[in-house]
Measured scan of single mutants.
Amino acid sequence: IRLYEREDYRGQMIEFTEDCSCLQDRFRFNEIHSLNVLEGSWVLYELSNYRGRQYLLMPGDYRRYQDWGATNARVGSLRRV
C-alpha cells in the first residue's frame, strides 16, 4: 500500500508491506489524503494501535480520503488482512 500526504497522489509518499501500529512513528504525517492498494486488502484505523474507525480497502486507487468512506484524513495505524 502506498500512502500520500496530499490528494491525487501528491506530496510525500510512503509504502508499507507490513502492519504498522503507529503511522506517525514511520511517517511524519497522521493525515493521508490519497493512497494506492497495490495488492491484497488492508484495514486503515483512525487511531494508533488499531483503534477507532476502520476502513477496509481492496486493491485500487483512492484519490481522496472520501473515496474510502472516511469523513477526515486522519490515519493512525494500518493492518494487512
Rank of each mutant, 00 (worst) to 15 (best):
E46F: 03
P59S: 09
T71W: 10
L3F: 09
R64Y: 11
W68D: 13
S34W: 00
L38V: 07
H33K: 06
Y45A: 02
Q24W: 06
D61M: 09
N72L: 15
R10W: 08
I1L: 05
G60I: 04
F29S: 14
H33D: 10
S41H: 09
L78K: 00
Y4E: 00
Y45G: 01
R10E: 12
E46R: 02
Q66E: 08
N72G: 09
F29T: 04
I14Y: 08
G76C: 02
W68Y: 03
Y4G: 01
G69C: 13
Q12N: 14
L23K: 08
Q66F: 09
L78I: 12
L57Y: 04
V75Y: 09
C20G: 12
D67T: 07
E31V: 05
R51Y: 05
S77L: 00
L47S: 13
L47P: 00
E39T: 12
G76D: 06
S77A: 03
L38M: 08
I32F: 09
L78H: 01
V75M: 08
Y55E: 15
Y65G: 15
R51C: 08
Q54I: 02
R10T: 08
V43R: 10
E18H: 11
Y65V: 07
R63Q: 13
Q66N: 06
Y62G: 02
E5T: 04
S34M: 01
Y62A: 15
H33I: 13
D8A: 06
R26A: 08
T71F: 07
T71R: 13
L57T: 09
Y50G: 02
R28G: 08
R26N: 11
Y4L: 01
L38Q: 09
Y65M: 13
T17Q: 05
I14H: 03
S21Y: 13
R10V: 09
G76Y: 02
R51Q: 04
L44P: 00
D8W: 04
A70Q: 08
R6E: 08
S48M: 03
D67E: 12
I32C: 11
L47A: 07
W68E: 02
S34T: 00
S34K: 00
Q24G: 10
R63F: 10
N36V: 05
L23T: 10
C20L: 09
L3P: 00
R74N: 14
R79E: 14
V75L: 06
Q66M: 07
L57S: 09
E46G: 02
S21Q: 02
R26E: 12
Y62H: 06
L35M: 07
E18R: 12
Y55D: 02
L47Q: 13
D8E: 10
N36S: 14
G60V: 11
Y55T: 15
E5I: 13
Y45Q: 01
M13Y: 01
L38K: 04
A73R: 14
Q12I: 06
D61V: 06
R74W: 08
P59T: 07
E15L: 08
D8G: 09
V37F: 15
W42H: 02
R10H: 02
P59Y: 02
G69D: 05
S41A: 02
R51L: 11
E46M: 05
N30A: 11
G60C: 09
E7I: 05
T71S: 13
T17R: 13
E46Q: 09
F29Y: 15
S41I: 03
R10S: 04
G60Y: 03
F16A: 05
C20M: 07
W42R: 00
M13P: 14
I32N: 05
R63V: 08
T17A: 03
W42I: 08
E39L: 06
G40R: 04
C22M: 13
P59F: 02
G11F: 00
V37I: 13
D19W: 05
D25V: 07
R63P: 09
W42Q: 00
E31S: 04
I1F: 01
I1A: 15
Y9H: 15
L38W: 15
M58F: 06
I32L: 14
E7P: 14
L57V: 12
G11A: 11
Y62L: 15
W68G: 04
G52D: 01
S41T: 05
P59D: 15
A73F: 03
E18A: 09
F29L: 09
R51W: 01
A70D: 15
W42E: 00
G76K: 05
L78R: 00
E46H: 03
E18C: 12
V75E: 00
L23S: 15
R10Y: 05
L47W: 12
Y50E: 01
G52I: 00
G76L: 07
C22K: 04
L44E: 00
L57W: 01
Q24T: 06
V75A: 09
D19M: 06
S48G: 07
F29I: 05
R64A: 08
Y9K: 10
Q66P: 09
D8M: 09
F27G: 05
R74K: 04
L57A: 06
S48C: 10
Q54S: 10
R74T: 11
H33R: 09
A70S: 08
F16S: 11
Y50V: 00
E7K: 14
R79V: 05
L44V: 11
L56F: 14
I14N: 12
T71V: 05
C22W: 05
L3A: 05
G11T: 00
G52E: 01
R74Q: 08
Y55Q: 09
M13F: 10
R6N: 15
N36W: 13
R10I: 13
G40I: 05
V43P: 00
F16H: 12
D61F: 05
R63K: 12
Q12L: 03
A70R: 14
L44Y: 06
F29G: 09
C20Q: 09
L47E: 04
R74P: 10
N72Q: 11
C22A: 10
P59H: 07
A70C: 13
E15W: 05
L44S: 03
T17V: 10
G52L: 01
H33P: 13
E39K: 06
W42Y: 15
Q12D: 08
I14A: 01
R26T: 07
R79I: 03
Q24F: 06
G60M: 04
D8K: 14
D19Y: 03
M58Q: 13
L78Y: 01
Y55I: 15
N72D: 09
M58W: 04
D67W: 06
Y4Q: 00
N72T: 11
N49W: 06
Y62C: 15
W42N: 01
D8H: 05
R79S: 13
I14D: 13
E7S: 13
S77P: 00
E18D: 06
A70G: 07
A73P: 03
F16P: 14
L23V: 07
L47H: 06
R6S: 09
R74G: 09
Y45R: 01
M58E: 12
L57F: 03
E31T: 12
G40H: 14
R6W: 08
L35S: 07
W42C: 02
G40D: 10
I32P: 09
E39R: 10
G76R: 11
R10K: 15
G52Y: 01
C22P: 05
G76V: 03
Y55N: 11
R51F: 04
S34R: 01
V43H: 04
L3C: 10
F16I: 06
D67G: 09
R53S: 12
G60P: 01
D8P: 11
Y45N: 01
D8F: 13
W42F: 05
E5Q: 09
C20K: 05
R64I: 07
R26S: 12
L44I: 12
F27W: 05
S21K: 07
Q66Y: 02
S21N: 03
Q12K: 12
R6A: 12
E31F: 05
W42M: 01
S48N: 10
G76E: 10
G76F: 01
S21I: 10
A73E: 09
E5M: 12
R53L: 04
G69M: 15
M58S: 12
R51M: 03
M13Q: 04
G60T: 04
L23Q: 02
E18P: 01
D8N: 02
V81D: 06
L47N: 09
Y50Q: 03
Y62E: 01
C20R: 13
L57R: 02
L23G: 02
I32W: 13
R74I: 14
T17N: 09
S21M: 03
L56N: 11
Q12E: 05
R28K: 15
E15C: 10
R28H: 02
